[in-house]
Design a protein around this nucleic acid. Sequence first.
DNA 1: CGTTTCCTTGATGAATATCAATAGTGGTGG
DNA 2: CCACCACTATTGATATTCATCAAGGAAACG
Lengths: 188, 188
Amino acid sequence: MSFETHRCLAKHTPIYFAGDDAGELIKVTKGVVSVFCIFEDGRRQIVDFVTEGELLHFQFGGELDHYAEALTDVELVCAPVNAALSDTAWAEYVFEQMRNRLDRERRHITLLGQKSAAERLAEFLIIVSERLTTPLGDIELPMTRQEIADYTGLTIETVSRMFSRWMRERRLVVTGKRTYRIEGALAA
Amino acid sequence: MSFETHRCLAKHTPIYFAGDDAGELIKVTKGVVSVFCIFEDGRRQIVDFVTEGELLHFQFGGELDHYAEALTDVELVCAPVNAALSDTAWAEYVFEQMRNRLDRERRHITLLGQKSAAERLAEFLIIVSERLTTPLGDIELPMTRQEIADYTGLTIETVSRMFSRWMRERRLVVTGKRTYRIEGALAA
DNA sequence: CGTTTCCTTGATGAATATCAATAGTGGTGG
DNA sequence: CCACCACTATTGATATTCATCAAGGAAACG
Protein backbone atom coordinates (compact mmCIF):
# COMPACT_ATOMS: atom_id res chain seq x y z
CA MET A 1 0.00 0.00 0.00
CA SER A 2 1.23 3.43 -0.84
CA PHE A 3 0.50 4.92 2.56
CA GLU A 4 2.57 2.40 4.46
CA THR A 5 6.07 3.07 5.73
CA HIS A 6 8.61 0.55 6.95
CA ARG A 7 10.95 0.62 9.91
CA CYS A 8 13.65 -1.64 11.25
CA LEU A 9 14.67 -1.38 14.87
CA ALA A 10 17.32 -3.06 16.94
CA LYS A 11 16.62 -5.04 20.06
CA HIS A 12 15.73 -2.94 23.14
CA THR A 13 14.80 0.13 21.12
CA PRO A 14 11.73 1.95 22.41
CA ILE A 15 8.99 2.12 19.78
CA TYR A 16 6.66 4.55 21.47
CA PHE A 17 6.00 6.12 24.86
CA ALA A 18 2.88 6.99 26.78
CA GLY A 19 1.97 10.49 25.68
CA ASP A 20 3.08 9.99 22.09
CA ASP A 21 0.67 10.88 19.33
CA ALA A 22 -1.51 7.92 18.32
CA GLY A 23 -1.57 8.90 14.68
CA GLU A 24 -0.45 5.65 13.13
CA LEU A 25 -1.11 1.97 13.37
CA ILE A 26 1.93 -0.24 13.72
CA LYS A 27 2.18 -3.80 12.53
CA VAL A 28 5.00 -6.12 13.48
CA THR A 29 6.33 -8.01 10.47
CA LYS A 30 9.39 -9.52 12.11
CA GLY A 31 10.49 -10.08 15.71
CA VAL A 32 8.74 -9.57 19.02
CA VAL A 33 7.64 -6.39 20.79
CA SER A 34 6.63 -5.99 24.41
CA VAL A 35 3.71 -3.71 25.20
CA PHE A 36 3.58 -2.47 28.77
CA CYS A 37 2.47 0.08 31.35
CA ILE A 38 4.63 1.76 33.95
CA PHE A 39 3.53 3.21 37.28
CA GLU A 40 4.85 6.26 39.07
CA ASP A 41 6.85 4.05 41.44
CA GLY A 42 8.54 2.12 38.65
CA ARG A 43 6.45 -1.05 38.71
CA ARG A 44 5.90 -2.36 35.22
CA GLN A 45 3.17 -4.59 33.82
CA ILE A 46 3.75 -6.20 30.46
CA VAL A 47 0.36 -6.41 28.78
CA ASP A 48 1.27 -8.39 25.70
CA PHE A 49 4.10 -9.80 23.68
CA VAL A 50 3.25 -8.83 20.12
CA THR A 51 4.67 -10.86 17.31
CA GLU A 52 4.66 -11.22 13.53
CA GLY A 53 1.48 -10.18 11.79
CA GLU A 54 0.04 -8.41 14.82
CA LEU A 55 -0.76 -4.80 15.63
CA LEU A 56 0.80 -2.99 18.56
CA HIS A 57 -2.04 -0.76 19.69
CA PHE A 58 -5.62 0.21 18.93
CA GLN A 59 -5.74 3.87 19.74
CA PHE A 60 -6.95 5.75 16.70
CA GLY A 61 -6.39 9.26 17.94
CA GLY A 62 -5.25 11.32 20.87
CA GLU A 63 -2.33 10.15 22.95
CA LEU A 64 -1.04 6.70 23.63
CA ASP A 65 -1.27 5.65 27.26
CA HIS A 66 1.31 2.88 27.34
CA TYR A 67 4.69 1.86 26.02
CA ALA A 68 6.15 -0.45 23.37
CA GLU A 69 9.70 -1.66 23.02
CA ALA A 70 11.53 -4.03 20.68
CA LEU A 71 12.31 -7.27 22.50
CA THR A 72 14.30 -8.62 19.56
CA ASP A 73 15.37 -6.92 16.35
CA VAL A 74 12.09 -6.01 14.69
CA GLU A 75 10.62 -4.87 11.43
CA LEU A 76 7.51 -2.75 11.47
CA VAL A 77 4.99 -1.43 9.00
CA CYS A 78 3.31 1.84 9.93
CA ALA A 79 0.13 3.26 8.47
CA PRO A 80 -1.61 6.56 9.23
CA VAL A 81 -4.82 5.80 11.07
CA ASN A 82 -7.13 7.52 8.61
CA ALA A 83 -5.64 5.95 5.52
CA ALA A 84 -5.66 2.50 7.13
CA LEU A 85 -9.26 2.65 8.29
CA SER A 86 -10.39 3.84 4.85
CA ASP A 87 -8.75 0.88 3.19
CA THR A 88 -11.06 -2.13 3.30
CA ALA A 89 -8.36 -4.75 3.64
CA TRP A 90 -6.66 -2.83 6.42
CA ALA A 91 -9.90 -2.09 8.23
CA GLU A 92 -10.82 -5.76 8.29
CA TYR A 93 -7.36 -6.66 9.46
CA VAL A 94 -7.57 -4.12 12.28
CA PHE A 95 -10.93 -5.51 13.32
CA GLU A 96 -9.58 -9.04 13.38
CA GLN A 97 -6.56 -7.96 15.38
CA MET A 98 -8.73 -6.24 17.94
CA ARG A 99 -10.68 -9.42 18.49
CA ASN A 100 -7.51 -11.41 18.95
CA ARG A 101 -6.13 -8.93 21.43
CA LEU A 102 -9.39 -8.95 23.38
CA ASP A 103 -9.16 -12.73 23.69
CA ARG A 104 -5.54 -12.61 24.76
CA GLU A 105 -6.24 -9.94 27.33
CA ARG A 106 -9.12 -11.93 28.74
CA ARG A 107 -6.92 -14.94 29.10
CA HIS A 108 -4.26 -12.79 30.72
CA ILE A 109 -6.80 -11.51 33.24
CA THR A 110 -7.76 -15.01 34.29
CA LEU A 111 -4.10 -15.96 34.51
CA LEU A 112 -3.36 -13.06 36.84
CA GLY A 113 -6.54 -13.13 38.86
CA GLN A 114 -6.92 -16.77 39.76
CA LYS A 115 -3.68 -18.63 39.51
CA SER A 116 -0.74 -19.61 41.68
CA ALA A 117 2.83 -18.90 40.63
CA ALA A 118 3.26 -22.38 39.16
CA GLU A 119 -0.01 -22.16 37.27
CA ARG A 120 0.80 -18.71 35.93
CA LEU A 121 4.16 -19.80 34.61
CA ALA A 122 2.79 -23.01 33.15
CA GLU A 123 0.12 -21.03 31.34
CA PHE A 124 2.67 -18.44 30.29
CA LEU A 125 4.71 -21.17 28.64
CA ILE A 126 1.65 -22.54 26.90
CA ILE A 127 0.64 -19.11 25.66
CA VAL A 128 4.13 -18.48 24.34
CA SER A 129 4.29 -21.93 22.78
CA GLU A 130 1.14 -21.14 20.82
CA ARG A 131 2.73 -18.01 19.45
CA LEU A 132 6.52 -18.40 19.39
CA THR A 133 7.78 -21.78 18.37
CA THR A 134 10.88 -22.75 16.45
CA PRO A 135 10.51 -24.82 13.27
CA LEU A 136 11.23 -27.87 15.45
CA GLY A 137 8.36 -27.16 17.80
CA ASP A 138 10.43 -25.89 20.70
CA ILE A 139 9.35 -22.88 22.69
CA GLU A 140 11.29 -19.70 22.10
CA LEU A 141 11.71 -17.37 25.03
CA PRO A 142 13.31 -14.20 23.70
CA MET A 143 12.40 -12.38 26.92
CA THR A 144 14.40 -12.10 30.14
CA ARG A 145 13.32 -13.48 33.48
CA GLN A 146 12.41 -9.96 34.51
CA GLU A 147 10.11 -9.63 31.52
CA ILE A 148 8.46 -12.95 32.29
CA ALA A 149 8.00 -11.74 35.86
CA ASP A 150 6.45 -8.48 34.66
CA TYR A 151 4.06 -10.39 32.43
CA THR A 152 2.98 -12.91 35.06
CA GLY A 153 2.85 -10.48 37.98
CA LEU A 154 5.54 -12.37 39.89
CA THR A 155 9.08 -11.54 40.95
CA ILE A 156 12.17 -12.55 39.04
CA GLU A 157 13.20 -14.84 41.91
CA THR A 158 9.95 -16.75 41.84
CA VAL A 159 10.21 -17.20 38.08
CA SER A 160 13.77 -18.41 38.39
CA ARG A 161 13.00 -20.84 41.19
CA MET A 162 10.05 -22.36 39.36
CA PHE A 163 11.99 -22.82 36.13
CA SER A 164 14.92 -24.32 38.05
CA ARG A 165 12.61 -26.77 39.73
CA TRP A 166 10.94 -27.85 36.49
CA MET A 167 14.31 -28.29 34.86
CA ARG A 168 15.63 -30.28 37.81
CA GLU A 169 12.56 -32.52 37.52
CA ARG A 170 13.02 -32.79 33.75
CA ARG A 171 9.59 -31.41 33.09
CA LEU A 172 11.18 -28.57 31.15
CA VAL A 173 14.26 -29.14 29.01
CA VAL A 174 16.67 -26.62 27.52
CA THR A 175 17.14 -27.30 23.82
CA GLY A 176 19.12 -24.21 22.82
CA LYS A 177 20.24 -20.74 23.80
CA ARG A 178 16.73 -19.46 24.39
CA THR A 179 14.62 -22.45 23.48
CA TYR A 180 12.91 -24.99 25.69
CA ARG A 181 10.71 -28.01 25.42
CA ILE A 182 7.96 -29.10 27.78
CA GLU A 183 8.39 -32.79 28.61
CA GLY A 184 5.76 -33.49 31.21
CA ALA A 185 2.90 -31.87 33.04
CA LEU A 186 4.01 -28.62 34.65
CA ALA A 187 1.21 -28.45 37.18
CA ALA A 188 2.13 -27.77 40.80
CA MET B 1 -33.62 -1.00 13.84
CA SER B 2 -35.82 -3.70 12.42
CA PHE B 3 -33.39 -6.50 13.12
CA GLU B 4 -33.10 -5.79 16.80
CA THR B 5 -34.94 -7.73 19.48
CA HIS B 6 -35.47 -6.78 23.10
CA ARG B 7 -35.22 -8.83 26.26
CA CYS B 8 -35.83 -8.17 29.93
CA LEU B 9 -34.23 -10.43 32.51
CA ALA B 10 -34.44 -10.62 36.27
CA LYS B 11 -31.46 -10.38 38.57
CA HIS B 12 -29.22 -13.47 38.64
CA THR B 13 -30.52 -14.86 35.35
CA PRO B 14 -27.83 -16.38 33.15
CA ILE B 15 -27.62 -14.61 29.80
CA TYR B 16 -25.32 -17.01 27.99
CA PHE B 17 -22.95 -19.87 28.68
CA ALA B 18 -19.61 -20.90 27.28
CA GLY B 19 -20.39 -23.10 24.30
CA ASP B 20 -23.45 -21.11 23.26
CA ASP B 21 -23.70 -19.98 19.70
CA ALA B 22 -22.16 -16.52 19.17
CA GLY B 23 -24.72 -15.50 16.58
CA GLU B 24 -25.89 -12.23 18.07
CA LEU B 25 -24.47 -9.12 19.62
CA ILE B 26 -26.00 -8.10 22.92
CA LYS B 27 -26.22 -4.57 24.21
CA VAL B 28 -27.15 -3.70 27.76
CA THR B 29 -29.70 -0.89 27.88
CA LYS B 30 -30.52 -1.09 31.57
CA GLY B 31 -28.83 -2.63 34.58
CA VAL B 32 -25.50 -4.35 35.07
CA VAL B 33 -24.20 -7.66 33.74
CA SER B 34 -21.18 -9.61 34.91
CA VAL B 35 -19.02 -11.30 32.31
CA PHE B 36 -16.84 -14.11 33.61
CA CYS B 37 -14.86 -17.29 33.07
CA ILE B 38 -15.08 -20.48 35.12
CA PHE B 39 -12.39 -23.12 35.56
CA GLU B 40 -12.81 -26.85 35.94
CA ASP B 41 -12.25 -26.59 39.69
CA GLY B 42 -14.90 -23.93 40.17
CA ARG B 43 -12.69 -20.86 40.42
CA ARG B 44 -14.30 -17.90 38.74
CA GLN B 45 -12.78 -14.76 37.27
CA ILE B 46 -15.06 -11.85 36.55
CA VAL B 47 -13.67 -10.12 33.49
CA ASP B 48 -15.95 -7.11 33.34
CA PHE B 49 -19.03 -5.51 34.76
CA VAL B 50 -20.95 -4.36 31.72
CA THR B 51 -23.41 -1.55 32.08
CA GLU B 52 -25.81 0.64 30.10
CA GLY B 53 -24.87 1.30 26.53
CA GLU B 54 -22.20 -1.39 26.40
CA LEU B 55 -21.83 -4.65 24.52
CA LEU B 56 -21.42 -7.97 26.28
CA HIS B 57 -19.09 -9.81 23.93
CA PHE B 58 -17.20 -9.48 20.67
CA GLN B 59 -17.34 -12.93 19.20
CA PHE B 60 -18.84 -12.74 15.76
CA GLY B 61 -19.17 -16.42 15.08
CA GLY B 62 -18.48 -19.86 16.45
CA GLU B 63 -19.00 -20.54 20.12
CA LEU B 64 -18.77 -18.25 23.09
CA ASP B 65 -16.01 -19.15 25.52
CA HIS B 66 -17.24 -17.41 28.63
CA TYR B 67 -20.35 -16.58 30.63
CA ALA B 68 -22.66 -13.65 31.24
CA GLU B 69 -25.21 -13.21 33.98
CA ALA B 70 -27.58 -10.43 35.04
CA LEU B 71 -26.28 -8.81 38.20
CA THR B 72 -29.37 -6.61 38.53
CA ASP B 73 -32.61 -6.66 36.58
CA VAL B 74 -31.52 -5.89 33.05
CA GLU B 75 -32.84 -4.91 29.65
CA LEU B 76 -31.00 -6.05 26.58
CA VAL B 77 -31.07 -5.38 22.86
CA CYS B 78 -29.92 -8.23 20.65
CA ALA B 79 -28.87 -8.01 17.02
CA PRO B 80 -27.81 -10.79 14.66
CA VAL B 81 -24.10 -10.40 13.98
CA ASN B 82 -24.41 -10.11 10.21
CA ALA B 83 -27.17 -7.56 10.24
CA ALA B 84 -25.39 -5.48 12.86
CA LEU B 85 -22.06 -5.41 11.10
CA SER B 86 -23.72 -4.44 7.81
CA ASP B 87 -25.41 -1.48 9.43
CA THR B 88 -23.01 1.48 9.49
CA ALA B 89 -24.21 2.94 12.75
CA TRP B 90 -24.02 -0.44 14.48
CA ALA B 91 -20.63 -1.28 13.01
CA GLU B 92 -19.16 1.97 14.28
CA TYR B 93 -20.71 1.41 17.66
CA VAL B 94 -19.24 -2.09 17.83
CA PHE B 95 -15.83 -0.75 16.92
CA GLU B 96 -16.02 1.90 19.61
CA GLN B 97 -17.12 -0.65 22.17
CA MET B 98 -14.25 -2.93 21.31
CA ARG B 99 -11.79 -0.12 21.93
CA ASN B 100 -13.38 0.66 25.28
CA ARG B 101 -13.26 -2.95 26.33
CA LEU B 102 -9.63 -3.23 25.30
CA ASP B 103 -8.80 -0.27 27.52
CA ARG B 104 -10.74 -1.66 30.44
CA GLU B 105 -9.11 -5.04 30.10
CA ARG B 106 -5.68 -3.48 29.99
CA ARG B 107 -6.42 -1.58 33.16
CA HIS B 108 -7.73 -4.75 34.74
CA ILE B 109 -4.50 -6.54 33.85
CA THR B 110 -2.37 -3.91 35.57
CA LEU B 111 -4.70 -4.01 38.57
CA LEU B 112 -4.30 -7.76 38.93
CA GLY B 113 -0.66 -8.02 38.04
CA GLN B 114 0.95 -5.33 40.10
CA LYS B 115 -1.19 -4.32 43.01
CA SER B 116 -1.68 -5.20 46.66
CA ALA B 117 -5.10 -6.04 48.05
CA ALA B 118 -5.65 -2.48 49.24
CA GLU B 119 -4.59 -1.03 45.92
CA ARG B 120 -6.77 -3.42 43.98
CA LEU B 121 -9.84 -2.56 45.99
CA ALA B 122 -9.14 1.16 45.87
CA GLU B 123 -8.81 0.96 42.10
CA PHE B 124 -11.88 -1.24 41.88
CA LEU B 125 -13.88 1.45 43.67
CA ILE B 126 -12.52 4.10 41.36
CA ILE B 127 -13.31 2.06 38.27
CA VAL B 128 -16.83 1.45 39.51
CA SER B 129 -17.28 5.09 40.47
CA GLU B 130 -16.43 6.07 36.90
CA ARG B 131 -19.16 3.80 35.59
CA LEU B 132 -21.85 3.35 38.23
CA THR B 133 -22.72 6.44 40.18
CA THR B 134 -26.03 7.55 41.63
CA PRO B 135 -27.43 10.94 40.65
CA LEU B 136 -25.89 12.24 43.90
CA GLY B 137 -22.41 11.08 42.98
CA ASP B 138 -22.29 8.12 45.33
CA ILE B 139 -20.82 4.84 44.22
CA GLU B 140 -23.27 2.06 43.56
CA LEU B 141 -22.12 -1.46 44.33
CA PRO B 142 -24.80 -3.82 43.03
CA MET B 143 -22.38 -6.73 43.33
CA THR B 144 -21.79 -9.00 46.31
CA ARG B 145 -18.49 -9.30 48.19
CA GLN B 146 -17.90 -12.56 46.38
CA GLU B 147 -18.27 -10.84 43.04
CA ILE B 148 -15.90 -8.09 44.06
CA ALA B 149 -13.45 -10.79 45.15
CA ASP B 150 -13.80 -12.60 41.83
CA TYR B 151 -13.13 -9.38 39.96
CA THR B 152 -10.11 -8.33 42.01
CA GLY B 153 -8.60 -11.80 42.35
CA LEU B 154 -8.89 -11.73 46.15
CA THR B 155 -10.93 -13.72 48.64
CA ILE B 156 -14.21 -12.60 50.09
CA GLU B 157 -12.59 -12.33 53.53
CA THR B 158 -9.89 -9.99 52.32
CA VAL B 159 -12.46 -7.79 50.61
CA SER B 160 -14.60 -7.71 53.72
CA ARG B 161 -11.68 -6.88 56.01
CA MET B 162 -10.45 -4.05 53.81
CA PHE B 163 -13.90 -2.49 53.50
CA SER B 164 -14.44 -2.82 57.25
CA ARG B 165 -11.15 -1.10 57.93
CA TRP B 166 -11.88 1.76 55.55
CA MET B 167 -15.32 2.20 57.05
CA ARG B 168 -13.91 2.14 60.58
CA GLU B 169 -11.43 4.82 59.53
CA ARG B 170 -14.18 6.84 57.85
CA ARG B 171 -12.42 6.76 54.50
CA LEU B 172 -15.43 4.99 53.05
CA VAL B 173 -18.95 5.87 54.16
CA VAL B 174 -22.20 3.99 53.62
CA THR B 175 -24.82 6.31 52.18
CA GLY B 176 -27.56 3.81 51.35
CA LYS B 177 -28.46 0.18 50.87
CA ARG B 178 -25.79 -0.46 48.31
CA THR B 179 -24.23 2.96 47.91
CA TYR B 180 -21.00 4.33 49.31
CA ARG B 181 -18.96 7.48 49.23
CA ILE B 182 -15.19 7.81 49.32
CA GLU B 183 -14.22 10.41 51.91
CA GLY B 184 -10.45 10.28 52.02
CA ALA B 185 -7.52 8.64 50.37
CA LEU B 186 -7.90 4.89 50.35
CA ALA B 187 -4.23 4.11 49.85
CA ALA B 188 -2.66 1.50 52.14
C1' DC C 1 39.63 -10.18 29.78
C1' DG C 2 37.18 -7.03 32.53
C1' DT C 3 32.67 -5.13 33.30
C1' DT C 4 27.98 -5.10 33.23
C1' DT C 5 23.82 -7.34 33.16
C1' DC C 6 21.23 -11.30 34.06
C1' DC C 7 20.27 -15.40 36.69
C1' DT C 8 20.28 -18.54 40.62
C1' DT C 9 19.88 -19.88 45.36
C1' DG C 10 19.17 -19.41 50.34
C1' DA C 11 17.24 -17.24 54.61
C1' DT C 12 13.63 -14.52 56.33
C1' DG C 13 9.32 -11.92 56.62
C1' DA C 14 4.93 -10.03 55.23
C1' DA C 15 0.70 -10.34 52.85
C1' DT C 16 -3.11 -12.83 52.01
C1' DA C 17 -5.47 -17.40 51.83
C1' DT C 18 -7.64 -20.78 54.51
C1' DC C 19 -10.38 -22.57 58.18
C1' DA C 20 -13.90 -21.84 61.47
C1' DA C 21 -17.43 -19.60 63.96
C1' DT C 22 -20.85 -15.96 64.39
C1' DA C 23 -23.78 -12.27 62.86
C1' DG C 24 -26.53 -9.93 59.70
C1' DT C 25 -29.99 -9.60 55.61
C1' DG C 26 -33.46 -10.56 52.50
C1' DG C 27 -36.95 -13.36 50.81
C1' DT C 28 -40.94 -16.63 51.60
C1' DG C 29 -44.83 -18.72 53.30
C1' DG C 30 -47.72 -19.19 57.23
C1' DC D 1 -46.74 -9.04 59.89
C1' DC D 2 -43.79 -12.24 61.71
C1' DA D 3 -40.82 -16.24 61.94
C1' DC D 4 -37.92 -19.02 59.56
C1' DC D 5 -34.43 -20.26 56.27
C1' DA D 6 -30.89 -19.59 53.12
C1' DC D 7 -27.63 -16.70 51.67
C1' DT D 8 -24.21 -13.12 52.53
C1' DA D 9 -20.92 -10.76 55.38
C1' DT D 10 -17.83 -10.17 59.27
C1' DT D 11 -14.18 -11.37 62.36
C1' DG D 12 -10.49 -14.09 64.49
C1' DA D 13 -6.76 -17.67 64.51
C1' DT D 14 -3.60 -20.02 61.77
C1' DA D 15 -1.18 -21.60 57.58
C1' DT D 16 0.93 -20.88 53.17
C1' DT D 17 2.69 -18.69 49.41
C1' DC D 18 5.37 -15.56 47.51
C1' DA D 19 8.09 -11.20 48.09
C1' DT D 20 12.09 -9.26 49.96
C1' DC D 21 16.83 -9.09 51.21
C1' DA D 22 21.37 -10.70 50.35
C1' DA D 23 25.13 -12.93 48.09
C1' DG D 24 27.49 -15.45 44.52
C1' DG D 25 27.79 -17.27 39.79
C1' DA D 26 27.09 -17.30 34.76
C1' DA D 27 26.49 -15.17 30.46
C1' DA D 28 26.80 -11.31 27.25
C1' DC D 29 29.36 -7.36 25.51
C1' DG D 30 32.69 -4.27 24.39
